[in-house]
Design a protein around this nucleic acid. Structure first.
Lengths: 341, 341
DNA sequence: AAAGTGTCGGAAATCGTTTTCAGACTTCGA
DNA sequence: TCGAAGTCTGAAAACGATTTCCGACACTTT
């Protein structure tokens, strides 16, 4: 019935010129109140919305930003996304979400797709550490970009928001050592994955500080699937002496590890102390509740959005290039006991 | 350095006209091999990619589809999304995701935003049942639309994909009744929420079939927050006699209810039988594992994508308008015992 | 009275494509 | 050999906005 009205229809209906309509609707100076009123009225009457494509084509910006993730099915990512998207939406941006399905080699293609859609900004939180082509693309595309909990990329308009994984991991190791543990296992995500690298480094440094030799066979890395994490956990548990404590990096790993421990009949919080790196619902509802590193995912998303918006607006002015947000170790029953070993 | 090359640059570089470039690149008939070769070569040399905005403006379609959700932080939704988005991506569509943040009154605005971006299709899985304005908008916008696990909407190009919640709920009630339960509680999502309505109806019918009078005080509805679900569960547990079994509709409700049961010192699988409506990781890892209704979320997403693509292509031809996918009750220890009450 | 200032309309350029139209050239059958 | 049909190609018109340029007023101000 009502084919979408064009700016010409509005002009005709308000008995003014198209240029006046454009000026009135975009709040340009030198336009009288009376004319503005007439135009706005006519626009509302015809339910006029400027054609997005024509508008963007002429203006040269799409008011939409691209969000690249490894998997949106990861509850941590989706929570961050929700927060960021809300902040962006209130600033008039729509966001197109692309998932690389945890395949790092797809990153480049995904970014290229987003760039071809001429997004005004980019938030990158792809699964594995982006390989060289993807990083180079970000550098050269000259699109304002925020790396979200990922390694920073050199570039004029590239920013980064990170969580301070290291300090909490160090605190966790100290906590375990204080409770008498000397065989502390570690299961990380993929080795190229930035948070995994940070956590692993902190784990090693904290062990060194406590003068505890790292046992290589108690260290494993898993991909982003529960079944793989399960398998790696089982492999780790084959070693003797068994670890008396275990740090699992990430919620997927946690799920796999819990399954493996149950299969091995190892009681969390008695036979083995457990520390998780994401404070998801499971950690609080599990019996016993499991110690975890909490971070404000909402703040993380909001900060990424804010930084990106600044990067788009300031056009390269001075802003913080990388922001590191705090984390907090929440000690629960899974690790809050003295090791008798 | 290299500003994006336009079709004119390619034309100039290949020493042909712009129209020929367009024809060659879009595989139109009546273009000689020689010319095509020259054009393709020049295009590659300049790394030419057609400008999305201009392309879409002229063609009248954006090759992007809008996805409206209540909250992407819900793991069930995000899993479905991931599957649908992958299917759409392989068909050349990008998807812009909009969350109404579980506020039903925002649905209309979100849809309007998506429509103004001139999406070629719409998948709607907003949180609560869309109120009248949103439904009317979908009807009138004449955009191919798939309602995902939501009430179907009358309209020429509106389709629906649903899960068969009823049959599994009926099976669950029968299962509980067979085990001797006669006081079976029910906690649903918001009353306007379509899956909640279906589950609740099935719950009532199954009770009636078993000639068990429904106790109104054992029925509660919660919003989409864990704290609210927690509160509602506590309220439900105030009644005497206590229910010996509980059906919780949805993963958020499950989390709240588990917290409440723990607070009340009620042992799941002994004091009270528990049946959940989403088979998330938690249900399998919880001790005891909790009985849940499983459905193929991947299939759900893929089916929605397929239906939408057909709706876009067939332009109103005959296809299935609504598809109902099966569900399956997975009985675990939380309910697999005889009621002694 | 001349000059400046604010307001508005009309025409036209622009963004980068796709699509239509018409002309030029080949091929082919009568 | 001539017209018709078919193949190739380029020029120009869309698509729907924003933006620029210029001219026409109606007011002030000097």
């Amino acid at each position: 019935m009502s084919q979408k009205a064009t700016i010409h229809d509005v002009a005709h209906h308000a008995r003014v010129s198209v240029s006046s309509v454009s000026r009135a609707l975009n709040n340009y100076p030198h336009v009288s109140e009376a004319l503005k009123m007439r135009v706005v009225e006519a626009a509302e009457e015809l339910d006029y919305q400027p054609a997005f494509l024509a508008h963007s084509l002429r203006r040269g910006e799409t008011n939409s930003i691209g969000f690249l993730v490894g998997s949106i099915a990861n509850p941590v990512i989706s929570t961050i996304y929700e927060a960021a998207a809300e902040a962006l939406a209130t600033n008039g941006y729509a966001v197109t979400l692309v998932s690389s399905r945890n395949q790092a080699d797809l990153d480049s293609a995904c970014l290229r797709l987003l760039a071809s859609r001429q997004v005004s900004g980019l938030i990158v939180s792809s699964a594995s550490e982006s390989p060289e082509p993807a990083r180079r693309f970000i550098q050269e595309a000259n699109i304002p970009t925020v790396m979200l909990d990922r390694a920073p990329v050199a570039g004029e308009r590239v920013f980064a928001v990170q969580s301070d994984h290291e300090s909490s991991i160090r605190e966790a190791v100290r906590h375990l050592v204080d409770n008498g543990h000397r065989h502390i296992g570690f299961i990380g995500g993929p080795q190229g994955f930035y948070p995994t690298q940070q956590r692993f480094r902190a784990y090693q440094e904290a062990l060194a500080e406590a003068r505890i030799p790292a046992r290589a066979e108690l260290i494993r890395f898993a991909s982003f699937t529960e079944t793989d994490a399960y398998a790696e956990a089982l492999l780790l548990m084959r070693n003797r002496p068994l670890p008396t404590a275990l740090i699992v990096a990430g919620n997927i790993i946690l799920i796999g590890a819990l399954g493996a421990l149950q299969a091995r009949q190892l009681a969390v919080g008695r036979d083995i102390a457990l520390v998780a790196c994401d404070d998801i619902h499971l950690t609080q509802l599990y019996r016993p509740p499991v110690t975890a590193i909490r971070r404000d995912l909402n703040l993380l998303g909001k900060t990424a959005a804010r930084l990106l918006l600044q990067g788009i607006a300031n056009n390269g002015n001075r802003t913080d290039r990388v922001i590191k947000l705090p984390t907090q170790l929440v000690i629960r029953e899974s690790s809050d006991y003295l090791c008798d070993g």
